[in-house]
């Protein structure tokens, strides 16, 4: 039992570290002319997806909160709020989909849904902060971008997650 807890904590910590590293790298990406500014590839969603399958909800929350904290420390309170609103909703939805609705969606579908929820959550928070609904103009571009990144992340997850899960299962069984 103890080993399991230690293992899970270590795994969670690794996920958190990876999320931070990915966040750092994504911050370095320059603005592309035709992309909505502030849009990121969202590779950390892949980490969240793995965490949802390999760890319980509490650990997933830990990874999300690490992301938020990193945003707060590096980019400020506003960025943290954005990360929080988007991250919590998308992690929650992806958790449900992966754990409870396993046969309903493929990995790309989960990833796209996660990306959509992340963007919509952020949009809602942004509308609240700026106290206006005019932000809605961003919707079409955000939706398209969510689909795009969702699909790309889904494909990457499809390649990367199965072997990771296999390794995880092996470790977990080595009690």
């Amino acid at each position: 039992m103890k080993k399991n807890l230690v293992y899970k904590t270590a795994l969670c910590a690794m996920m958190c570290a990876l999320t931070v590293a990915i966040g750092f790298l994504e911050n370095l990406i320059p603005e592309m002319p035709f992309l909505p500014p502030g849009a990121k590839p969202g590779f950390s969603n892949i980490i969240i997806m793995f965490a949802c399958e390999a760890l319980s909800g509490a650990y997933v929350a830990a990874v999300v909160l690490t992301k938020v904290l990193f945003a707060f420390v590096t980019r400020g309170a506003t960025a943290a709020i954005m990360s929080l609103s988007g991250g919590v909703i998308s992690a929650f939805v992806m958790f449900l989909l992966l754990r409870k609705g396993k046969n309903k969606a493929g990995i790309a579908g989960v990833s796209v849904t996660g990306a959509l929820c992340h963007n919509l959550g952020q949009l809602a928070a942004a509308a609240f902060i700026s106290a206006t609904l005019k932000i809605v103009y961003y919707l079409p571009a955000l939706l398209v971008f969510a689909v795009l990144t969702g699909v790309v992340n889904g494909i990457i997850a499809g390649a990367v997650l199965p072997p990771l899960k296999r390794i995880n299962n092996t470790f977990e069984q080595e009690e």
Binding site: G106, A108, V112, L116, P140, G158
Partner: peptide, 23 residues
Amino acid sequence: MKIFKKSDIILIFAVLFVAGIIF
């Protein structure tokens, strides 16, 4: 787990369609 299930494709196109209409 499969990467693209039928429901995924439907979801993708539905979202793109909605985005197009709003635009």
